[in-house]
Amino acid sequence: MRYLESALINLAKKVGRVSLENVASPTGGAPLPEADASNMDVLLNSWAEATKVQHATRQELRSKLFADGALRSEGAVAVATRDIVFSSPSAASATALGRASSNGRIEWKTQDGQTLSAWEQSVG
């Protein structure tokens, strides 16, 4: 796990799109056998490529939604002007925010600031 943690933190630092709360630089733990390290690198590269594709797909959809007026910009947020069907709250929030992924149960909030998760618990 330390190998993955170290690799992901180094990747996040390299990309520079997010701030990291973990100020320590993990060492990566004990060296892995070459075959295991290779397998972990393949896993990380596959994940990174899938994330790039997902982000590009969501960005394309977001652009189309803005172009056809389904989304409009209101300051720093995107506002839906009509119902838009998504497969999940997370897919909807990632598209609206222009991200590869997002936790819709936390990102979506009522006008008084209650998260979707908290609202679901209060009505369910």
Rank of each mutant, 00 (worst) to 15 (best):
A48G: 11
S46Q: 15
A56L: 07
E107V: 15
R82L: 05
S19W: 03
T57A: 14
T81Y: 01
P89F: 02
K14N: 10
E49P: 06
A78F: 06
N39W: 02
S122C: 00
A12S: 09
R58Q: 05
S73L: 12
N103K: 08
D112A: 09
S122T: 01
G16M: 09
L4S: 09
E49L: 14
R62C: 05
E120V: 11
G29D: 00
S25I: 11
D83G: 13
V85C: 14
E74V: 10
A94N: 09
F86W: 09
V77N: 11
A48E: 10
S46R: 15
W47Y: 14
E5H: 09
S88T: 06
A91I: 00
G124H: 06
S117V: 03
S73V: 12
D41I: 04
L65N: 10
L20I: 11
G28V: 00
I84R: 07
R2I: 01
S87F: 04
L8F: 04
T110Q: 09
E60Y: 02
A100N: 02
A80N: 13
S117E: 09
S25M: 13
A92K: 07
E74M: 11
T51V: 04
S90L: 05
T110S: 15
N22F: 01
T51H: 05
R17L: 14
S117R: 14
P33R: 08
W47E: 07
P31Q: 10
S25T: 15
V15F: 01
V77K: 12
L43T: 04
K14V: 07
T95K: 03
M40L: 13
W119C: 04
R72K: 15
N10A: 14
A92H: 06
L4T: 04
A37G: 09
L32D: 03
E107T: 15
A67H: 12
L11N: 12
L20T: 05
V79N: 03
S6G: 12
S73K: 15
G16A: 05
E107H: 13
Q121L: 12
